[in-house]
Design a protein around this nucleic acid. Sequence first.
DNA 1: TTGAAAGCGCTAACAG
DNA 2: CTGTTAGCGCTTTCAA
Lengths: 336, 336
Amino acid sequence: MSKVGIRDVAKLAGVSTGTVSRVLNDHPSVTKELRARVDGIIKELGYMPDPSARSMRSKVSRLIGIVIPDLTNPFFSELVQSAEQAAANHGYNIIVMTSFDHAAKEADRIRQLTSRKVDGIILVPSNDFHTLKLPKGLPIVVVDRLMPGYSGIAADHRNGVRLGVEHLLKLGHRRIGFISGPKHSVPANDRLRGYLDAMEQTGGGTELGASPLIAEAAFDYESGRSAGNYLLARARNERPTAIFASSDQQAIGCMRAAHDLGIPIPAALSVVGFDGIPLASMTTPRLTTVKQPIQEVAAAAVAVLLNKRTAPELDKPILFDCEFLNGETTAPPQPD
Amino acid sequence: MSKVGIRDVAKLAGVSTGTVSRVLNDHPSVTKELRARVDGIIKELGYMPDPSARSMRSKVSRLIGIVIPDLTNPFFSELVQSAEQAAANHGYNIIVMTSFDHAAKEADRIRQLTSRKVDGIILVPSNDFHTLKLPKGLPIVVVDRLMPGYSGIAADHRNGVRLGVEHLLKLGHRRIGFISGPKHSVPANDRLRGYLDAMEQTGGGTELGASPLIAEAAFDYESGRSAGNYLLARARNERPTAIFASSDQQAIGCMRAAHDLGIPIPAALSVVGFDGIPLASMTTPRLTTVKQPIQEVAAAAVAVLLNKRTAPELDKPILFDCEFLNGETTAPPQPD
DNA sequence: TTGAAAGCGCTAACAG
DNA sequence: CTGTTAGCGCTTTCAA
């Protein structure tokens, strides 16, 4: 059994290779009967077109690249998995690459993908993305960390955070601390804005004399823990009664900080996270959080890429709504 | 700036396309000077060979497929990330696919990869893998869940578990419960064997009258929680003083069960997990666990694939050692 | 050691 | 609607 090619199919079906090719590509101008016959032979022979030859002629690789900062981050791994599903539904496959939030590595990966002739790239930019210039002519859709000046697809972080903070306000909290993301991160700032939106709307302040309620931190566990320590290590009547963290991992770090300070959750401190990763439902107590619509974002990104020839450039970001997930880490505040 | 091809390079360098090709492929029979000149032009023009054309002629795609059950599982996402790194170091890229532990989907994915002409496949088989027949002629290396009759690469689960259980024995525990993995999973059975190894070696039993010390469960959080409940919901002097769980997620579920039963960890119950995923260090208290050498496994898998032409078939599994990671969830047993 | 030339397996004009 | 045919951009004999 040597390799079966398009010519074998053509010969056995008694047609030309051109016709077989047209059948393969769902070209409309093939009669039903012929199509059926050819399809039959194809199945019979177990013929599979050679993607290299195909893409060489047609300039279509049916390959999508996805570049993310860190696959170990559950948020991104879910994004990749969702994208893979969406792509597979359309006969596309995914090449994953990790940038480790390193601009140089990121640029290199994008170059690799370009030379691979992928049909499009889904990019979650590294934090110093601004140094990066995207290759022209290759469809790239920026996801999650939207860049000013670039359009893309993301969750509506700002509104999502507002949802979470409003939940705390409704419970009666007023001294609500906020653990923000890295200063220059776009989504971090969107989330901060959501917090400020909610706080201003109550007429409440976001500072408490010399004791600010906002702590900047990276998105990871350890940073959240430090930030939690910073916000909680003060006199009880100056201490926030609730904390909103910009990521679930931060929130979990913050819970650890509270635990170490002997502050019970949710009795003496309410905590809300952001992201809605599986991890959130594995803590004790279960973390209350705001879930990002990762699947929708991934599916939309793939869709945009697949329609790229027809679809106009995204002129404004596409945003999807977040969802509030009630857990066990919030309760009304204790009286001072 | 239209597309720059090999002919442009050849023309500018004053050589034939054949020579350029030889330079590209490090063919030894090119003089230093010529190689240097051509390399210069290549850089100058920013020429990148078209991978489709290349692979069509050479039958090498520089693409590796990786099929895993679930990218959302931190263990697998770390595996993929490590493989991506290792592959990138050799100019290879990775196509990821998720089988969702579904034999049919898995077979389909493997077929897709085959038709993509990937140079090799890294496969973490779904649990009903035995129904799957691997395509001959395409190098496949089975990873983590080794199959009887197939060779592959994995962590030494059995010894790893023994390490963890011995730690508990050394602390003085004798009634050590075990949460196993799914009955038909190969690594689950390896881990169980490790537990039995350690227990037998002390002359201790693995049952306690009508109260078995072993609970079967899937590898996830909820299953671990159920299993924990099962093992812990009994009279105190029949209850295990320590539990070894076959995965970190199970261990965390088990911790939740203990918490809900009012059993403090580690005071009244020691818990040890298995896997060493990042999650383990984010629990309160930090989970003591046994870490699998994921990076080494991934790197070895890639290496095997890249050397496949020269390297002989793996005739026996390659195993890498696990590492014990001390956390905060173990302590000597309380007197009954 | 290098050049010339023949395809790899397929798609897309162009005819018919 | 279908067949014919000319390449896509590269690698690789085969000569020189």
